[in-house]
Amino acid sequence: MRWFWILFFAVCPIAALVICIIAPGMDWWFPSEAGSPLGERIDSLFHLILYIVTGTFIGTQIAMVFVLWKSSKQDDERAWFSHGSHNLEVIWTIVPAGILLFIALYQMDVWAEYRVVSNFPKEARRAPVAEVMARQFEWRIRYPEPGRILQIQAQPTDLYAVNELIVPAAKPVMIYLKTQDVQHSFFLPELRVKQDAVPGQIIPVWFEATKPGEYDLVCAELCGWGHYKMGARVVALAEEEFAAAMEQLETEQSDDGFAESGDDDEE
């Protein structure tokens, strides 16, 4: 029986090691590859932490297996009771504290770029693409008319959409995030963006979709019974296509239903 436990505790770190090595390559940790440059850097931070934790885990496991193995040979020696070692405790407090401090400092750049408005890319800050208003249970979107700057107050020329946020691809974009009722969270898993929408606040969020395509937009804050309904999409389009899509939205929204043929209601 004792050999079973020794083997069991020896196999655990080995399995953990194997899993940690193959996990990033198998896309187990993240929903697909990061679709944005900042997302890649966030991923690499996660990976760094993963490596540190893996190393620590394996180290402690080896130590434990070693103790088990060693004492399994001492059949008649009684275990002794210890009040601890001051030196050891100092070491295992300072070493993790140092590691944590290192992580805290190392990630600061990414954090600042992600969250601090003055560090946002200039071109994103200059012209927010849209206001995203979360509400129970959908995302209402307000764009400025093409060529205009988005205002905090609604403008007569604004364009409206719901559950589909169109943005230009391959360039940083910024949105204003708001909520009409309770807390929601603007979550773009593929782009590694997650930001709570807080009642009464207008929160700027920036992101960049490297490639044109459709990305999930979901709510990541349990906001009520219909929380699961808040699935939407972000559509990243190449520059010209984006302009065309905005123009089309404008045409649709100014539809007066008057057509010579008399048939107008197609969208």
Binding site: Q136, F137, E138, R140, V162, N163, G226, K229, G231, A232
Partner: peptide, 22 residues
């Protein structure tokens, strides 16, 4: 039918009818 489609697709702002655009 078109009207019902529109309502389901875009929801009704000001009510609890959400959009089912997806």
């Amino acid at each position: 039918r078109d009207d019902l489609s529109r309502i389901i697709k875009y929801g009704i702002p000001g009510t609890y009818m959400p959009s089912f655009l997806l």
